[in-house]
């Protein structure tokens, strides 16, 4: 029975590793390859940590498993080793992990700065925010500046509005302003690896560069009430051309109620 329990503790890490190993092929992994430039950097760091962590996991579980197996196969009457520890080992396993941990920290700084430090945002994105995204229970309200103007903090005449669909040009860095009308929400685009809380009272800039035209999910990642799970929206990345086309279509939808056209066609008939 002793051996059974030792094997029990040796067996489960193998299962755990196996599950992780087959996970990508079973689609139990990232929802897609990262679709933004920052996403690549984030995934790179993830895999770096994953390697370090896996080595540590295997090391400690093998150590534990071996110690258990040794204990389980000890001959009856054999005594336990009498030792209060070892300075050498303590120093070793203090210094080695601390170097590894500091190393991990240092590798993060660059990417963190790229994501969050406003001064390091790409210039073209920083100067012309494309839209303001306002979260509210339970939807995303998008405000684009009137074509040809800059996005202002307060709504301006001629601004364009839409709900739950954010259009951005593909292959170029874009910045959006994030805010909330009511409680706290979080802007989470899993395939872009973008996440930022929308905090009441603050306007928070975020930037990303989508590499491939397409539709990307936008969900809420901060509990915002009973409908938290329903804040489903899309980010649509498209070519500059069709992006501008979309904006002008939006503008005409918003500004022309069709009455004038009808009047015109009516007068033409007369």
């Amino acid at each position: 029975m002793k051996k059974f329990w030792a094997l029990f503790f040796i067996f489960w890490p193998i299962v755990a590793l196996y599950v992780c190993l087959v996970a990508p092929s079973r689609n139990w992994w990232f929802p897609s390859a990262p679709m933004s430039s920052l996403g690549h950097q984030i995934d790179g760091l993830f895999y770096l940590i994953l390697i370090i962590v896996t080595v540590t996991f295997v090391g400690t579980q093998v150590g534990l498993g071996y110690a258990l197996w040794k204990g389980a196969t000890k001959k009856p009457g054999e005594k336990a080793m009498f030792s209060h520890g070892s300075h050498k080992l303590e120093i070793m396993w203090t210094i080695v992990p601390s170097f590894v941990l500091v190393f991990i920290s240092l590798t993060q700084l660059e990417v963190l700065a790229n994501i969050r430090v406003l001064a390091r945002f790409p210039d073209e994105a920083r100067k012309t925010p494309v839209a303001e995204v306002t979260a509210r229970q339970f939807e995303w309200r998008i405000r684009y500046p009137k074509p040809g103007t800059q996005l202002a903090t307060e709504p301006q005449e001629g601004d364009l509005y839409f709900v739950n669909e954010l259009h951005v040009p593909v292959s170029q860095p874009v910045m959006v302003h994030l805010r909330t009308q009511d409680v706290q929400h979080a802007f989470f685009a899993p395939k872009l690896r973008v996440k930022q809380d929308a905090v009441p009272g603050l306007v928070i800039p975020i930037w990303f560069e989508i590499e491939k035209a397409g539709e990307y999910e936008l969900v809420c990642a901060e509990l915002c009430g009973w409908g938290h799970y329903k804040m489903k929206a899309r980010i649509i990345a498209e070519s500059e051309e069709s992006y501008l086309k979309y904006l002008s279509a939006l503008e005409s939808d918003q500004n022309e109620d069709g009455v004038a056209e009808q009047a015109e066609s009516a007068s033409a008939e007369e």
Binding site: L64, A67, L68, G71, A72, K74, A80, M81
Partner: peptide, 8 residues
Amino acid sequence: IWDGNIKF
């Protein structure tokens, strides 16, 4: 645990 006289 190492080299202990383990009671399972």
